[in-house]
Design a protein around this nucleic acid. Structure first.
Lengths: 214, 214
DNA sequence: CCTAATGTACGAACTAGTGAGTTCACGGTA
DNA sequence: TACCGTGAACTCACTAGTTCGTACATTAGG
């Protein structure tokens, strides 16, 4: 069903498999070394195929990088889309949303690195991608509803919009990963230390609730 | 007093001036393109001297980059050292500290970019720098005192340490600059829009106080 | 005139990208 | 069923252009 030409899963010539293989290796290489630091030859070598195939399927280094970005962003978006907090009290819903971001970022350091790298390049590649340029965030609608319910119940302040809350959540969760190394080098504390994980996870939720209900 | 060999300011051969010139140009180039993306020839060209001098004074690309990092970090540290909040109420002192960081980061986007870049490289260059490896943060001591005063007065919660507060402040202020481009590309909002600046500045202070006094 | 400082030209290694040819699966056809 | 044409998938070797770093010559200043 899935495979185009029946048989088993070890075909020698398999368009989808080759593309996916390249994309996987490229994701790691770009996240590891940055766009400029990544080497096409290096990607090719770690692939089960050759450099020529990268150009055959993706066109070039930049298009490959954009494909990597697209896959990474679409993955997190589909995960957010599964968020279901309508049955929760506004406070709990906010906490759940924050924890989802907290957990996801911690589980996907490569995504965070790609975002950092893309910001160094002033998001020029995202702008060049048709699929990413205007990609809406499904979690944002859910967040808007939560805030609305909280406000309606007279429990949440009314001068905060969904994007502001998103900034607070993201900034905390992203910083913990993105700036982990300089922070550890300067302050000697590993923000990803498992012993402090719960502290930070609860701290973010507390902070949001304290602010929203003040 | 300042100039080592009296005379006027336009000597042909001036060790300090040449070094400072190179360092300035290099800071912009590295912050702009990243370590791997930066080009030694490009730096040399924008300097009033030649590439040979870069190698003569700094030794190589990496050492030049480390020198850039050292200068950038020392600059912010000396600024933090000027912070004087002992005469303020704990709440106001926290706000003042947060606003200092908020303002400084906004005024020094190159520093934020260098930090992002250095994190992509897992802080390996900071680790290699003797001056940066164990650089203490003077603002942290001040922050510890503020928290202590707040706790003593029974107004601040007691399960937060100075570094935690620093993380909250930094994450918000850094995110606003570091992730400005992908955020704008995806959500269509410029976090540096002057019209929203005061909102965010106050929001950070409110958030900290609400959390600390909850 | 001696040394620190500076300019010029060059080279070895690397790097993205390509030209040209090969293999394989498959459907039509004699 | 044996053969063949076809195009997609793939391999290999190569090139044009960079990029860091340096050997060597030169100049300014004390």
């Amino acid at each position: 069903m899935a495979a185009p030409s029946s048989s088993d899963g070890e075909r020698q010539r398999d368009k989808d498999r080759t593309r996916a293989d390249i994309l996987d290796v490229a994701t790691r290489e770009f996240a590891d070394k940055g766009y400029t630091g990544a080497r096409v030859d290096e990607i090719a070598e770690r692939t089960s195929t050759t450099k020529r195939m990268i150009y055959y399927y993706f066109g070039g280094k930049e298009q490959l990088y954009i494909a990597v970005l697209e896959k990474a962003y679409l993955a997190i978006r589909s995960l957010e889309a599964e968020l279901d907090v309508e049955h929760l009290e506004p406070e709990d819903a906010i906490r759940r949303l924050a924890e989802l971001t907290f957990d996801h970022h911690e589980a996907h350091p490569d995504f965070i690195r790609l975002v950092s790298i893309e910001n160094i390049h002033r998001a020029e590649h995202i702008a060049r991608s048709e699929v990413l340029a205007g990609l809406a965030n499904p979690a944002l609608d859910g967040l808007a509803q939560i805030l609305e319910r909280g406000r309606a119940a007279g429990r949440f302040r009314d001068d905060v919009d969904p994007l502001d809350v998103h900034i607070v959540i993201s900034s905390f969760c992203v910083f913990r990963l993105a700036n982990r190394h300089t922070f550890a080098a300067i302050f000697g504390r590993d923000m990803l230390d498992p012993d402090r994980r719960e502290h930070y996870r609860r701290m973010l939720g507390d902070m949001l609730i304290d602010y929203l209900t003040s």
